[in-house]
Design a protein around this nucleic acid. Structure first.
Lengths: 253, 253
DNA sequence: CGCAGAGTTGAGAAATATCAAATTTAGTGG
DNA sequence: CCACTAAATTTGATATTTCTCAACTCTGCG
């Protein structure tokens, strides 16, 4: 269950909320529990929420009264059909927003659910508005974040619509590897921690978990990707990126 | 080829650019050539571009110096792989932006190509910036447009990732019917003009044109949807929407 | 009339899903 | 450390969907 803990502070903090995250998080830490919060939340009144794995962070259709920033842990956004089928439409990593800013403060158009233990900062709408007025550069930063999300959605559409299972899986891992490196996760040695089950992969890629399993085995045999139990290692990252025409440009902002 | 015609004007015009489009376009006109421009471009300096069917309006990777507003005609956004596979990631109808505002003025993350003869207004970045400063409500309006696009992308992901061919096709037509009604296209009698080929549908839905053809035949036999030669008629719209769990809420702004 | 693009058809192959049952793994409490 | 359990992974057999390729037909247009 959510265990909100209010920790309001008063000082001002320019646009550090997002601008600094990239630079500051480069402190190569190995765990998924990297806390981006230090640099982020100084001086911004917020409420801290904690979730255990598998909890609903935001429900589809829920009305928003603020912005939710993922501090540590992973989550995913998803849309579900009545008969149980569900599509994961994106992953939320530390430093990402659970609720896209462009969604405004209206109703969520998808749900958000935690994959691991995670901590989320909830920043009230009024605080956000005030910051936006004070600092117009923040708008630009929000816009960039939204643009990246938009681009990722397009990349996913291309991935699911046009590629076959092996390429789909590979492309997703390229994206995740790139994003993790950017925020300082990923020990680089011989594997990243990617807290996804094969079922999660299936839901994200429009496949069946059985099929994902079989394809993963082939990718393993061919020494392309070795993913098991939430741990992934990629033999030759550049080769894999070339294989699936992965361009990391859109993740570089 | 593009035949730019400059028509600069000076007067101010608040946020009519988008706010008015819905109301004003309700002048139920039957053709695809409905011109939203009257209400839109009064007093906004712009450049008018014309395209014939099948032309590249904006290329993937192209640097933008302004915003492109579709006035009349249809286009689609797409991403392509090197081997020729391509995924249509959205359709651009009159009143839509070819280049999402949130993309900023950077590089396009996808291409835009016309489906019919179409006219596009290009509004220079400086003009846009000026308007944004003068009128902060315009930002809100842009944000809403971006949010809708975002939501549509999510809906497409769910569609392609989880649904089988018949449902996919049906859902797309629900979306298009709703959007067309909203901007005043669609004579309602017994059919809409939807200027798509079966190949276009295939590229949008992650299917093969052969398969689209066969599924369309079945949908026709079962009197669900009759689509041929760019003309569609749906027997029972509400029934179809229910069939594919289509919710039009996200298109109502 | 004759072409080009779009639509249609058929046969067969490939990819992916479905169902049901093992098997392995990660935790948990003793 | 062991036994027990629930979740995740793996496997096998089979069904369904979707693709591929190639030919043929239709339609609109000059």
């Amino acid at each position: 269950m959510t265990s909100p803990t209010v920790q309001p502070t008063g000082a001002t903090s320019p646009l550090s909320v997002f601008a600094d995250i990239a630079s500051n998080a480069r402190s190569t830490r190995a765990s998924l529990a990297i806390d981006a919060e230090r640099a982020l939340l100084d001086g911004i009144p917020h409420e801290m929420l904690s979730f255990s794995a598998g909890e609903e962070i935001l429900a589809d259709g829920e009305a928003l009264g603020g912005t939710y920033l993922m501090l540590s842990g992973w989550a995913f956004r998803y849309k579900a059909l009545m008969d149980g089928r569900r599509q994961i439409i994106g992953f939320v990593l530390p430093g990402d927003l659970c609720s896209s800013w462009i969604g405004g403060m209206g109703a969520m158009s998808h749900g958000v659910r935690s994959l691991t233990i995670s901590r989320v900062a909830r920043i009230d709408r009024d605080v956000i508005f005030q910051r936006l007025v004070e600092n117009s550069a923040l708008i630009e930063r929000f816009r960039q974040v939204a643009a990246q999300e938009h681009t990722i959605l397009g990349a996913w559409l291309l991935n699911i619509g046009q590629r076959k299972a092996p390429e789909r899986i590979a492309h997703l891992f390229c994206e995740l590897a790139t994003r993790m490196r950017k925020i300082g996760l990923s020990p680089v040695d011989d594997g990243y921690e990617v807290p996804l089950t094969q079922q999660d992969l299936a839901d994200a890629l429009g496949l069946t978990s059985v099929h994902v399993n079989r394809v993963l085995q082939k990718l393993r045999e061919r020494h392309f990707i070795d993913f098991r139990r939430g741990m992934i290692s990629i033999q030759d990252v550049p080769a894999l990126c070339a294989y699936v025409e992965f361009k990391d440009g859109y993740l570089s902002h």
